[in-house]
Design a binder for these strands. Structure first.
Lengths: 225, 225
DNA sequence: GTCAGACTGTGACACGGATCACTCGAGCCG
DNA sequence: CGGCTCGAGTGATCCGTGTCACAGTCTGAC
């Protein structure tokens, strides 16, 4: 009961579910169950059947992508309030990416059959999903464009600026992980970070990056080639 | 009248509209107007307001993407029956790509306000759009993955195999255009094509590529690194 | 026919990044 | 406490591709 209420509140502040009216929100909340993951635990892998939609309640989930030959990229790291898993849910085809917990995490889960029924009955939920999917597409085309045209330096810069918005200026991330984010290698990331360090833009620690001059970084990210 | 009938038929065979029942199909057809483009004419550019959805009736449309500094990539070339422009239409934000006719082209056009009203009233149309968007997302994540991990050789190979499925083994495309497709340069594409030519996989002509051994190409595309 | 413009074929070269091969230091755990 | 593992830092090298430069060739227009 208290949990369902908690859930409705969480959903209400979510940009995704926020557009729904109270009654619909309650109906969605009724469909949810919760699930917990330990650090490193895999929720689903690329290729799995997609039979559920997830929302992060507490913790962090890494969405990543691996090719046959074992290369990986981190597409995104999601935290409280983020919704994911909607594509495989909606069209019933296999997952295109994998999801693993990077810390102890609690999720809300909505099963495919429940949600599809709700979409059919309530157009506003469908519209909500349409907007979610559109946002996803725009986000992806941004990413694609950056990956295709920008140098490592630029990609890294943008990623750091984005991370700094989530973390404040003490970003907790290993260089290895950062490399996965921008589709590069630890060594190359390190070399670029050293350049910025020498330029006084940031300080480096084990598993953390301290951004000293966020404004200047943001300026570099937008103005530069 | 004849045209509206033609339209309903065209929509019915389209994988996108095909799932709709006859009555809904007619309703959608009622919303359509047609529009013609000359070769090279631009339908919309990246950044434009998105106030319409399009379906190709006859001809070909190139969807491409340009960055501030003028670099371009061809994302796709659409032909009869393909639907495009749905993202900006649905969420009302600017176009993420540009569309130009590569030959004299006729389009069906549905305006934003008409379609939104229909989505609200008819859940099956909304579901149809959800599937379209999901397909788009899957397609894009394929592309992104390929662009990020594969060598030029591999990307080119896959593109040729795909083109060969549309064209038969006489692919009509300039090397310049092929380069835009795979996000590379004419020169690099030419060099790779020469290698395959020497290997007896294909023959080259002015503006055309003759695939001699489709099976072997397909095998290379799937098996290789 | 011939002239302009588009497309193809190629060589030389530069450069960003991947890869390999280590070293160093910090923190954890038995 | 001493090892052991994980992350950071760095040099040497190599390879793929972009870039520039130019020559050859086809085709359609006048």
């Amino acid at each position: 009961m208290g949990e369902k209420h908690d859930l409705a509140r969480l959903l209400a502040v979510n940009p995704f579910f926020g557009g729904l009216d109270g009654e619909t929100l309650d109906a969605v909340a009724q469909l949810c169950v919760t699930r917990s993951l330990a650090t490193g635990q895999t929720l689903f892998a690329k290729g799995d059947a997609g039979d559920a939609l997830y929302a992060v309640r507490r913790g962090q989930v890494r969405i990543s992508n691996e090719t046959e030959d074992g290369r990986r990229t981190t597409l995104n790291v999601l935290s409280s309030g983020d919704v994911f898993g909607e594509v495989a849910l909606l069209d019933g085809r296999p997952r295109t990416a994998s999801a693993t917990a990077v810390e102890p995490t609690t999720l809300f889960v909505i099963l495919r059959r429940d949600l599809l029924a709700m979409i059919e009955r309530r157009p506003s939920v469908a519209v909500q999903f349409i907007e979610l999917l559109c946002a996803r597409i725009r986000w992806m085309s941004q990413r694609t464009e950056e990956a295709a045209f920008l140098s490592l330096e630029q990609r890294l810069l943008r990623r750091l600026v984005a991370l700094a918005q989530d973390f404040g200026d003490e970003i907790v991330v290993s260089q290895e992980e950062l490399a996965l984010f921008v589709g590069s290698t630890r060594e190359s990331v390190n070399r670029q970070l050293q350049i910025w360090k020498r330029g006084g833009l940031l300080r480096l620690g084990r598993g953390r990056i301290h951004v000293l001059d966020p404004q200047r970084m943001a300026r570099l990210a937008s103005s530069d080639t």
